[in-house]
Nucleic acid binder design. Structure first.
Length: 831
RNA sequence: GCCGAGGUGGCGGAAUGGUAGACGCGACGGUCUCAAAAACCGUUGGGCAUAACGCCCGUGCGGGUUCGACUCCCGCCCUCGGCACCA
C-alpha cells in the first residue's frame, strides 16, 4: 500500500520517531514560540488591514478552565483566528471577572484572603488557556479586582451619579440569606438566588440603583442588532413594556389628603365592569382607608403578607386571598361605589400598586370574585354571547355592553375612546409601564468595588472627588458576612473627612455588583494600560463597537442588558459615540455529557488530563465537531478517536515524501485533486463564517480521504499535491493551530501559518465535470444518470427517455408534465 | 399559561423546496500480525425479495399545499430554555 511506503522506505525506527504526530511535544513548542515572537500581539492599527474585535465573555476565575469553558473558548478562538486569516487585524483579548462571592466564600471557608485565592486561580487558568493554544493578546489582559481596573468602575459610577443615573433609595430589596447580600431582580430566578438557590426574602433597606429604566424604550430598539432572536425576545420580555391608563377612583368621601385612588390597567375598555378595587398590602393608602371594624383583619393580613416569601407570593398556583378594608371607591365614569380590598396578588412594585377588579375580563379577578362573592358584570360581549353567566373570564376583544355611551362599539375602538374621555375629564391619563425595575447594584460584601461615596452629617451624600480615586479595598478585613458589608467593621476604612466641609464623615461601605465590572470591560480592552481615563478614546474608536461577541445565553437579561445600558449612559455622557456595544452576538450552546450538564462536582471531565493524553488540538476539534456550536454538544469519550484518526491522517498526508511524484501527472486525477481542494476551501470558508465548525471539519475529513485515495494512484505532480496540502493546512489552522503550524514548517513554509491568509477558491475549478441527474417519475426517484456538468435541458430529457428503466415506467403512460432542475433532476409526471 | 428553540439510523449529527442519513462514533466482515493494538479496505435506516433487475416503508403524530416536503402551511404530542398573579 502506497500510504505507508514513504515510511517503510526509510529506517523504520528512526522514521517513526521523527514522523509520528506527538501533540504534547509540538504543542508546547509552538505555544512557547508564539508567545516569544508575539504572534498574537495586537496593535491598534495595521496599515492595510481593517480591525476586527472578537470578544468572548471573560470567565470568573473559579480556578479551572473546565470543559464547558473549553467548548466556549475554543470555538471563539477558532472564529477569531478565522477572521485573522481573512486579513483582519483581530483583537481577541482575555481577562478575568475576578471580583465576586465565590472567592470570598472560599476565603471564609479556608481562611485564605480572597485576593490570594483569586490570583492563584487566575495563574492556573492562564496556564490552561495557554495549553489550549488560544490566540490571546496577553499584553491586554485585565483583572477586574485590580485597583487599576476598579478605580474606573468608581469613576464611571461618579459620572452616572452626577448625571442622576445612579441613586440611593430605601425600599424592599431582594435579600439572599445565604449570600448575606442583596441581589438585583435579574439575579433572582424563580424567587431564588441565581447564584446559590436560596429563597430570596424581601428586606427593607437603603440600596443603590442605576436608572436603567430611563433607557427602557431605547433598550427595546434591537432591530439593528445582529443578535440571536432568542436573546432579543428575552430582553423585550424582561423590559415588559405595556401601554395602559392610570385611572382614578374617587375616595373623597373619607376626607383624606388623597381624594383619588389611582389604578393602572391595560384594559380600560373593561372599566365599566369594575366591581371592586384591590390594593397591594404595601400600598400607602391601606392604613388610612381601613375602617375600624376591619382594622384587625387588615393589619393581620398585611403582616402575614410581609412574612410571605416572594417566591410564594408570586406563585400562580397559589390561591388568591384578600380582605375587605370596609372602604369604598367611586368609579367616576358611572358613579358606582365599589368595595376596596387588600390582596397580595397585587404587586406594590408594578403600575400603581392598585388595580380595578374586572372579574368578567381578567382571570385573576375572576377567581378572586368567585371566592369572595363579588359581582361579575360582562362589559365586553363575545360574538355569540347569549347573556348568560361566564364560565371563565372572557379576555378576547368583543362588543361593548353595559358601558353607557360606548355600548355597541367594538372593544378595540372603545379602548381608545374611553381613554380619550378619561383624559378629557381629568380622571386619569394614558401611561406606559415597564416590568423592568432599576438595577439594584449595591452588595453587602467585601470582595467588590467600594462605592465611592461619603456620608456626611451636614452635607449628606457626597461623592468622593475623582482625584481621590481609587477608594481602595482594605487588604485586611474580617470577611465573615454579618448582613452588612465587612467594610463597615473597618474603622480605618469608614472614618474619613467630608470632601465638602472637612468634618469627620463615614464612607459608604457597600460594594458594587460584579456586573458593573463587566458592563464596560469591552471598552477597557481597547486600552487596558490607560492610566488617565477608563479608556483611551482613540483606541475605543479603533476597536468599538465589538464586531463579534461570543458567549452563553445565560446572560441574556443580566450582563447583556446591563452592558447595553452602560453603553447608552456613557454615550449620553459623551464618553463614547455609538449606541450599542456588541454589533453581532453569537451564543454557543451548552455542553452536556450523558444527558446531564457537566459540572465540577457531579459530572466531571478534567481538560488537563485530556490535553495530556490527546493534545489540545484534538480536544478543540472534537468539541467543535460535536454539532452546531449554537446548539451545544453531547460529549462522549468514544468520539474522540475519530478526531484523533483524522489528525493523524492529516499529519501522515502532509509529511509524505513528494520527491517520488511524477513530473507529469494524469490530467484527470490532477483535476480531481484540485477540485477536491477548491470545494473544501469553499465549504470551509463559508461554514467558518457562520460558526459551523462541525461541517468545516467534516469537509476537511472528506478532503483527507480523497487525497489519500488520489495519492495511491501515484499520478499527480508534486506541485498539485503541495497546493492541496497547503490549502488543507491553512483551513485547519484556526481549528487546530498547533498541528497546522508544525506541518506548515515541515512542508517548507516560513513561520507562522497564523500570519498567512486563507486560500481563495475558484468556482470553476471546484465545479464537477460529471453530475448525477436524478430522474423522478411522479416525484419518486427511479433512475440516476451520470451526465456532463454542462448538460442542457433537452439533453437531460433525452438521456432520461433513453433509459431502459425510465422506459419501463413510461410504458402505456402519458407524460403530462416535465420538470427540470438544472444540474439536479428531471421529474416526469405521468398518467 | 405565555414566549423561544428543537424532535432525522444503535449514538453525535448532515441536508432549509429537488438523490434523506454527509462526516464521525459504534457494530460487523476483511487486510496486515505469532497474537493483540494501531492503521487501512468494505458493509451498516427498516421491511419484502424469484437475491437479479428490484419493490415498499421511513425525518415526533394527523391533515394540507406542491410535479416534488425533513424543509412551507394548519392542528396536536413530546423535550429543552426563558418568563410567569406585571393588571
Amino acid at each position: 500500500m502506497t500510504t505507508t511506503r514513504s515510511r517503510q522506505d526509510r529506517d523504520p525506527e528512526a522514521a517513526r520517531s521523527r514522523d509520528r504526530y506527538e501533540p504534547s511535544t509540538i504543542e508546547a513548542k509552538w505555544q512557547e514560540r508564539w508567545e516569544r515572537e508575539g504572534v498574537y500581539r495586537t496593535p491598534d492599527h495595521v496599515p492595510g488591514k481593517d480591525n476586527w474585535y472578537a470578544l468572548v465573555m471573560f470567565p470568573y476565575p473559579s480556578g479551572d478552565v473546565h470543559i464547558g469553558h473549553w467548548y466556549q473558548y475554543a470555538g471563539a478562538d477558532a472564529h477569531a483566528r478565522f477572521k485573522r486569516m481573512q486579513g483582519y487585524n483581530v483583537l481577541h483579548p482575555m481577562g478575568f471577572d475576578s471580583f465576586g462571592l465565590p472567592a470570598e466564600n472560599a476565603a471564609i471557608a479556608s481562611n485564605i484572603h480572597p485576593r490570594i485565592y483569586t490570583e492563584a486561580n487566575i495563574a492556573n487558568m492562564r496556564r490552561q488557556f495557554r495549553s489550549m493554544g488560544a490566540g490571546y493578546d496577553w499584553d491586554r489582559e485585565l483583572e477586574t479586582h485590580s485597583p487599576e481596573y476598579y478605580r474606573w468602575n468608581q469613576y464611571l459610577f461618579l459620572k452616572l451619579y452626577k448625571a442622576g443615573l445612579a441613586y440611593r433609595s430605601r425600599g424592599f430589596a431582594n435579600w439572599c440569606e445565604s449570600c448575606q447580600t442583596t441581589v438585583a431582580n435579574e439575579q433572582v430566578l424563580d424567587g431564588a438566588c441565581e447564584r446559590c438557590g436560596t429563597t430570596i426574602v424581601r428586606r427593607e433597606m437603603d440600596q443603590w440603583f442605576f436608572r436603567i429604566t430611563a433607557y427602557a424604550d431605547e433598550l427595546l430598539e434591537m432591530d439593528d442588532l445582529d443578535w440571536p432572536n432568542k436573546i432579543k425576545v428575552m430582553q423585550a420580555n424582561w423590559i415588559g413594556r405595556s401601554g395602559g391608563v392610570d385611572f382614578d377612583f374617587d375616595i373623597s368621601e373619607y376626607g383624606l389628603a388623597e381624594t383619588r385612588l389611582t389604578t393602572f390597567t391595560t384594559r380600560i375598555d373593561t372599566v365599566y365592569g369594575a366591581t371592586f378595587v384591590v390594593l397591594a398590602p404595601e400600598h400607602p393608602l391601606v392604613e388610612q382607608l381601613t375602617q375600624p371594624e376591619q382594622r384587625e383583619s387588615v393589619v393581620g393580613y398585611v403582616e402575614q403578607a410581609a412574612r410571605t416569601s416572594e417566591i410564594e407570593r408570586t406563585s400562580t398556583e397559589r390561591e388568591k386571598t384578600g380582605v375587605p378594608t370596609g372602604a369604598y371607591a367611586t368609579n367616576p365614569l358611572n358613579a358606582e361605589r365599589v368595595p376596596i380590598l387588600v390582596g397580595d396578588y397585587v404587586l406594590a412594585t408594578y403600575g400603581t400598586g392598585a388595580v380595578m377588579g374586572v372579574p368578567a375580563h381578567d382571570d385573576r379577578d375572576f377567581v378572586f370574585a368567585k371566592k369572595y362573592g363579588l359581582p361579575v358584570r360582562v362589559v365586553i360581549a363575545p360574538d355569540d354571547w347569549d347573556g348568560s353567566d361566564l364560565e371563565e373570564a372572557y379576555l378576547a376583544p368583543g362588543t361593548q355592553v353595559n358601558s353607557d355611551e360606548f355600548d355597541g362599539l367594538p372593544s378595540a375602538e372603545s379602548i381608545e375612546r374611553i381613554a380619550d374621555k378619561i383624559e378629557a375629564g381629568q380622571i386619569g391619563h394614558r401611561r406606559v409601564t415597564y416590568r423592568m425595575r432599576d438595577w439594584q447594584f449595591s452588595r453587602q460584601r467585601y470582595w467588590g468595588t467600594p462605592i465611592p461615596i461619603i456620608h456626611c452629617k451636614s452635607c449628606g451624600t457626597v461623592p468622593v472627588p475623582v482625584s481621590d480615586l481609587p477608594v481602595r479595598l482594605p487588604d485586611e478585613a474580617e470577611f465573615k458576612p454579618t448582613g452588612r458589608s465587612p467594610l463597615a467593621d473597618d474603622p480605618d476604612f469608614i472614618n474619613t473627612i467630608c470632601p465638602d466641609c472637612g468634618e469627620p464623615a463615614r464612607r459608604e461601605t457597600d460594594t458594587m455588583d460584579t456586573f458593573v465590572d463587566s458592563s464596560w470591560y469591552h471598552l477597557r480592552f481597547a486600552s487596558p494600560q490607560e492610566s488617565e481615563a477608563p479608556f483611551d478614546p482613540d483606541a475605543v474608536r479603533a476597536w468599538l463597537p465589538v464586531h463579534q461577541y461570543m458567549g452563553g445565553a445565560e446572560h441574556a437579561v443580566m450582563h447583556l442588558l446591563y452592558s447595553r445600558f452602560f453603553g447608552k449612559a456613557l454615550r449620553d455622557l459623551g464618553l463614547v459615540d455609538f449606541d450599542e456595544p456588541f454589533t453581532r452576538l453569537f451564543n454557543q450552546g451548552l455542553l452536556i455529557k450523558d444527558h446531564r450538564k457537566i459540572s465540577k462536582r457531579s459530572n466531571p471531565l478534567a481538560p488537563d488530563a485530556l490535553v495530556a493524553r490527546y493534545g489540545a488540538d484534538a480536544i478543540r476539534c472534537y468539541l467543535m465537531f460535536l454539532g452546531p456550536w449554537d446548539q451545544g454538544g453531547d460529549w462522549s469519550d468514544d468520539g474522540l478517536s475519530g478526531i484523533t484518526r483524522w489528525l493523524n491522517r492529516v499529519w501522515d498526508l502532509a509529511v509524505r515524501d513528494i520527491a517520488g511524484l511524477p513530473e507529469v501527472g494524469d490530467p484527470e486525477t490532477e483535476r480531481e485533486l484540485v477540485r477536491a481542494a477548491h470545494k473544501t476551501t469553499r465549504r470551509a470558508v463559508l461554514d467558518l463564517e457562520r460558526f459551523k465548525f462541525n461541517t468545516t471539519i467534516a469537509a476537511l475529513m472528506e478532503l483527507s480521504g480523497d487525497m489519500n485515495r488520489i495519492w495511491d494512484r501515484g499520478s499527480v505532480t508534486a506541485a498539485a499535491w503541495s497546493d492541496a496540502i497547503e490549502r488543507m493546512l491553512l483551513i485547519t489552522a484556526p481549528l487546530a493551530p498547533h498541528i497546522a503550524e508544525e506541518l506548515w514548517e515541515r512542508t517548507g513554509h516560513p513561520f507562522s501559518i497564523h500570519n498567512e491568509a486563507l486560500p481563495g477558491w475558484d468556482d470553476e475549478l471546484a465545479a464537477d465535470e460529471v453530475i448525477t441527474v436524478v430522474v423522478q417519475i411522479n416525484g419518486k426517484v427511479r433512475e440516476r444518470l451520470e451526465l456532463p456538468a454542462d448538460v442542457t435541458e433537452d439533453q437531460a430529457f433525452e438521456a432520461a427517455f433513453a433509459s431502459d428503466r425510465v422506459k419501463s415506467y413510461l410504458d402505456g403512460a402519458e407524460v403530462v408534465r416535465r420538470i427540470y432542475v438544472p444540474g439536479k433532476l428531471v421529474n416526469l409526471v405521468v398518467r
